[in-house]
Design a protein around this nucleic acid. Structure first.
Lengths: 314, 314
DNA sequence: GTGAAAGCGCTAACAG
DNA sequence: CTGTTAGCGCTTTCAC
């Protein structure tokens, strides 16, 4: 049969509602689907550990359909990242799951990777310039917008809000900037809320001793646009400062501790486990089941209080 | 081979990490897996429509692995329910998805059904007396507890809370009672919150004209323990009563309308679509993949504000 | 280029 | 009761 006729037959076949039996097809193919997983080293980083847990869960579930994973981990610095990039580029596989922590380097990498014509799904943060790639994660801007609402709750009088940035030595993605943008946008969109004043503070992750009481004088609410809200909570607790509303991200053990103590009020959960799972699920659906899959999957902005936090049962 | 030897071989096989190829197995079996879906009629009831959407999604996804669904719908009355029970009992299938709306009748039905030795998964509400059955849905008590927290937010002064029950003609499950229990429990557990006073009102679904201004005199917060918060919201809007916090359930179109207007403050989402999907998913995993599946799957208590509501893209 | 045949791993039917 | 075999629906190989 010529390609022409193949097409014709396929057309007719589809017309009469034929569905290829994916079980038989994959049985006959008798092949493994190799997916590369390219992430920051997760040891001691709870958030990335959760991502891996979700990924592993997917690996077990889809393993019976031939899915095999290979991991590539990079340290939190651009040099390690670049080194690992080479390995990933050389690696033969059917799909890539990727967390683009370093923006510039990731853009470059994706451009390079594109030549291989292998589907890519990004988790955690998105690189929107490459629309053809899939994304599983939150809408960072909107999550900041929501945080704005959460800090504005049921408050009539003057409020002083502090945006507290605690950054890594080597700063990476722009996620936390998008969150802050969203945060301010909320107050811009709600003109009635003129009684809110803002200030910002930035410290390095290593310089936690930089915290001082002055920073918090007159402050009613603190917004921590990454997972380190517990650092602020701990400081306030140690200094017996009460009645400050704290809003942060991610269900780290330490954050949960202060949530349960009532010191942190709100945490926005990014569902890292679900992200990892859905990332692999995307590749599975696309490559193994050969389905058409939605390119962008936004994880809902989940608000966690003491009263709706439940440890993940395992 | 005797059964004895089969067992021995299987033991050895398992010892060396043999995994039966589920694709080949199901291909050879060449059988359909029939699941019965036994639910209230969903026409005009958004919540149940969503459940069906999730169920249908699962049906498409698992259809390629041989899953076929048969539907049995009952009206919202015990007579129709009992009539449909007969059909379900007579129906040959490999699994049952079931919403136990009428408590007494459901207990009886489940006892009867148990004889058939077919796995059952319940959605929406649970019948805990039958521990051997699976459940996908929320923890109703805890959701009320959370609602308690939501009504207590950042409030220092005296608060008058109204629990507003709008019930169906024929009342069904005890879900809303569990929610109210949980609601009160929150205030019991938080002794500091002595400035809260409570009252309750009950009206029938059909008697919406029973609402009157007196009910709301002095009220600061209203808790509607089912999906009909929009009825209260509409009444307050029509009567230009502002500044009352409303907490309700479910993302019905009408609820969303008042959420976006800022009249309803919080909605607790039960994720009906996910419930339906996961219900079928449970049966699929158990029967088709022959996996061991967790018997209870609690849907997270999702707090929805105007700022984190996004219409489901389809 | 084309069509027949082997075989993926498993189950069920069928002889022995 | 046991062991052999056909065949599930598809892909790939191998003769022609």
């Amino acid at each position: 049969m010529t390609q022409d006729n193949v097409d014709k037959v396929n057309a007719i076949i589809e017309k009469y509602g034929y569905k290829r039996n994916i079980l038989a097809s994959n049985l006959a193919l008798n092949k493994k689907f190799r997916f590369a997983v390219f992430l920051p080293k997760y040891e001691n980083i709870e958030y990335w550990k959760s991502q891996i847990i979700g990924i592993e869960k997917a690996a077990v579930e889809f393993g019976k359909f031939g899915v095999v994973l290979d991991y590539f981990f990079y340290d939190f610095n651009a040099i390690s990242f670049k080194k690992e990039i080479k390995k990933v580029l050389d690696f033969e596989c059917d799909g890539l799951l990727f967390a683009p922590i370093f923006y510039e380097e990731s853009v470059q990498f994706l451009n390079e990777y594109q030549k291989k014509n292998i589907p890519v799904v990004m988790i955690d943060s998105n690189i929107s310039s490459n629309q053809e790639h899939a994304y599983v994660g939150q809408d960072a801007f909107q999550s900041g917008y929501l945080a704005g609402r959460l800090s504005s709750f049921a408050v009539k009088n003057e409020r002083q809000i502090l945006i507290f940035k605690i950054t890594r030595e080597i700063e990476s993605t722009s996620v936390y900037k998008q969150r802050i943008d969203g945060f301010y946008s909320f107050f811009k969109d709600n003109e009635g809320l003129t009684n809110f004043k803002f200030s910002e503070v930035t410290i390095k992750d290593s310089g936690i001793d930089q915290l001082n009481l002055e920073m918090f004088s007159g402050i009613n609410s603190v917004f921590v646009p990454n997972s380190r809200a517990y650092i602020v909570a701990r400081f306030l607790e140690q200094n017996h400062i009460k009645g400050v509303r704290i809003i942060g991200y991610d269900l780290l053990k330490e954050n949960i501790e202060y949530l349960n103590k009532g010191i942190i009020d709100f945490l926005i959960n990014q569902r890292p486990e679900e992200q990892g799972y859905l990332g692999i699920n995307y590749l599975y659906k696309k490559m193994v089941l050969q389905e058409i899959v939605e390119n962008t999957h936004y994880i809902p902005l989940e608000i966690i209080l003491k009263e709706n936090y439940f440890p993940v049962k395992k």
